[in-house]
Amino acid sequence: MHELAVCESIVSAVRMHADGRPVRTIHLRIGTLRQIVPDTLLFCWTLVTEGSDLADSELLVERIDGRIRCRHCQGERVLDDYVLACDHCGGVDVEVVAGEEFLITALELTEA
């Protein structure tokens, strides 16, 4: 369950950027190719923050679909499976253009 370690890293980053201010919400953007299960991440968040200054904070996760682009025909498609081939020309010389994101995009702070 690597989501536990991911949550610990999020806590560190949030504390550094919040600089002691109370945090209400942490906005995340996570690509589907990151192999992170959102429900497991949310569960781990409650475990990692229990009894801390972040216990009442909430994670809001925006999922980003995996997308590839064919280097031959420039066709793009959303990955609904893990077949890395172009739907347009059948080419397999593709590049991942979305879905590998893992970002904290915003912190909503509360009044102290």
Rank of each mutant, 00 (worst) to 15 (best):
C70Q: 05
G66I: 00
L107T: 13
C70W: 00
A106W: 04
G90H: 07
L28S: 08
R63W: 00
C7K: 08
T110I: 03
E3C: 06
V83S: 10
G90K: 06
L103R: 13
I26C: 05
V97A: 07
C73S: 05
D65W: 10
R69A: 05
L42D: 09
V92Q: 13
E100W: 09
E8H: 13
I68P: 00
V96G: 00
E58R: 15
E8Y: 11
L4P: 09
E111M: 06
D93S: 14
I36K: 01
E100Q: 13
D93I: 05
Q35C: 14
G31A: 04
P22C: 11
L4C: 10
L84F: 15
L79E: 03
V48N: 06
I10N: 07
T49F: 02
L79H: 03
E50P: 00
P22F: 01
I64H: 00
L41P: 01
V94Q: 01
A13R: 12
C70L: 08
Y82R: 14
S12F: 14
G20T: 05
L47F: 09
V37G: 01
G51M: 02
D80R: 13
G75W: 02
D87K: 07
L33E: 01
A112I: 09
D19M: 13
V92L: 06
R67N: 03
G91Q: 11
D87W: 04
C7I: 08
H27A: 07
G51H: 01
I30A: 01
I104A: 07
W45P: 10
E95T: 12
E62Y: 01
D39A: 15
D56H: 08
L54N: 09
R21G: 11
E58T: 12
E8Q: 15
E108R: 02
M16Q: 14
S9N: 15
G66L: 01
E108A: 11
S12N: 15
E111G: 10
L33W: 01
